[in-house]
Amino acid sequence: MTPQNKLLKKECLPTFVETLVKGGKLLYAPTKENERIEFKLIENFSEIYLDYIQTTKSIKSIVFPPIEKLFEYVADKEHVEIKDVNLNTIPETIVFGAHPCDAASFKVLNAVFTWDCNDEFFLTRKDKTTVIGLSCKNHDDYCFCTSVDLNPGSTEGSDILLTRIENDNYLAEIMTEKGEAVYKLVKNLFEPAPQVDKNAFVTQLPKLFDLNDLRGKLSFEGLSWMQQSLRCLSCGTCAYVCPTCSCFDIQDIGNQTKGKRVRIWDTCALPQFTLHTSGHNPRHFQNERWRQRIMHKFSYEPERLHVYGCVGCGRCSRACPVNINILENLIEISGGNK
């Protein structure tokens, strides 16, 4: 479809959101509670906090939940019955107010979950999720979306992208059919869009390194992976707050007669991730695991899946308990500011 621009006046925003909620869709939006900014399920517009730079956790849990039930089973010695999850019960969901970095992350997840064979759990969730993005008014020192070829007003991944323009009204760029479907539900709230220079209303974030330079410099053996990662405590925070980290474990919950098999988040930062039963571990030392994290995102994923595994949201750096700042390391590897 051809994208179309509309104007959504600020006084119409609450009606917009609440109409969608009343229409039976689950709506996640950023909220602020005790200084913690997180996406939460919303009932009223007043719960929403749009004036944020970044949430702690990303929106990936909406399409790739921390626990995903794969099936249930009942079993005895002679019989095993596997009960499928009815994917039709996955609710229609709207993510409201996600910044362009988050919106772009679904493309990366999609690349993993459709590589050769389709993961229908992810795909169904993604298909049922509409992203109403929000361009960034502000950024902080951790943000680097412009360095990974995105920008604070990027429409990539958003079904509708809102940008706050004059008089706190919103420019709505309706990008996809899913976006149009939402638009049609609340069409009367929109007005024709004025001619605006969107760029003048989004934050200006300078590019701090060049992706091609970075990829060219990445090398398995040749870099100071140990120097960069000695501080690392080997926890999984970076991966779990990351919008594009998608590694998982498969576990059974229950016993041999009744239970379920689930997929849960896992991370290359933990030594158990690659530990063989024999005790051998291909990535025994943390510098090897840190290398895997960087190489996977900036070398292997581009090579194998044609996407970079990073959207420059900076969450990993903000959440790291020992201030391992990925931007600092990426600038160092790529050879400094360009």
């Binding site: 993993v112 590694c247 474990d249 896992d266 063989h276 895997q292």
Partner: peptide
């Protein structure tokens, strides 16, 4: 014989380089 979970390139643990 690297450790595996999914078997089809998604769970992310068996890679040797790319």
């Amino acid at each position: 014989e690297n450790r595996m979970k999914c078997g089809f390139g998604k769970c992310g643990r068996c890679n040797v380089g790319s």
